[in-house]
Computed example of a mutant assay.
Amino acid sequence: MYEGAVQDLIDELGRLPGIGPKSAQRVAFHILEADGEDMKRLADAITTVKEKVKFCAICFNVSEENTCRICQDSRRDPSLLCVVEESKDVMAIERTRSFRGHYHVLGGSINPIAGVGPDQLHIRELLSRLSDDTITEVIVATDPNLEGEATATYLYRMLGSIGIKLTRLASGLPVGGDLEYADDVTLGRAFEGRTVMS
């Protein structure tokens, strides 16, 4: 245990996701040793992002305006809606340049152990968006883990009867991977999602 401000900084850094006690200590000492101007810019960037960034009123992606740039883009296909868990998932999909529709960010996934149920997610808002008959396909792009699968199943049950095409992102083997290192679930899904070679 360190004294005062140093321990307070370590404790706060340790509350960040993916940062354990040793990493928090390493980051804290980096901050102590770093140039004061660099750390002031870091502190200003954190303050600015908390003051300026909010969630899009339509899709719940992060935005500095009331509506995000993707929702404002008239060149995107309004009939396609990709449902993701978090804003970082939107950026991952956008990097592929394979999708030109719109998004809906749920704000997480169903996780009863963490106390997150469907009511804590933006599912009601999703249903509202689907009521105007513009959207013809909903692509469920939740994570391929237990919580993501539970969320996808819940969405399928909720949306299965409203006459909109529901699809799920394929999952399977990564490019550049070796079959011998693939886990059973991944390999099984690769077989289930196989495509015809043409």
Rank of each mutant, 00 (worst) to 15 (best):
Y2E: 14
Q7H: 10
L9K: 00
I10Q: 10
L13I: 15
R15I: 09
R15A: 13
I19C: 07
K22H: 05
A28R: 06
I31G: 07
L32C: 02
L32D: 04
G36W: 00
A45I: 07
T48A: 12
V49Q: 11
V49L: 13
F55W: 13
F55Q: 15
C56P: 05
A57S: 15
A57V: 07
S63M: 10
S63C: 12
S63L: 12
D73F: 10
R75A: 15
D77T: 14
L81I: 04
L81Q: 04
V83E: 06
V84D: 08
V84E: 03
E86Y: 12
K88G: 13
D89F: 05
D89C: 03
R100E: 04
H102P: 13
H104S: 02
L106F: 12
N111E: 04
A114Y: 00
G115P: 05
L121E: 02
H122L: 00
H122Y: 00
L126S: 04
S131C: 09
D133H: 08
T134N: 13
E137F: 07
P144L: 01
T151R: 00
T153P: 04
Y154V: 01
M158A: 13
G172M: 05
L173K: 08
V175Y: 10
G176Q: 01
G176V: 10
Y181G: 10
V185P: 06
L187G: 03
E192F: 12
S198G: 13
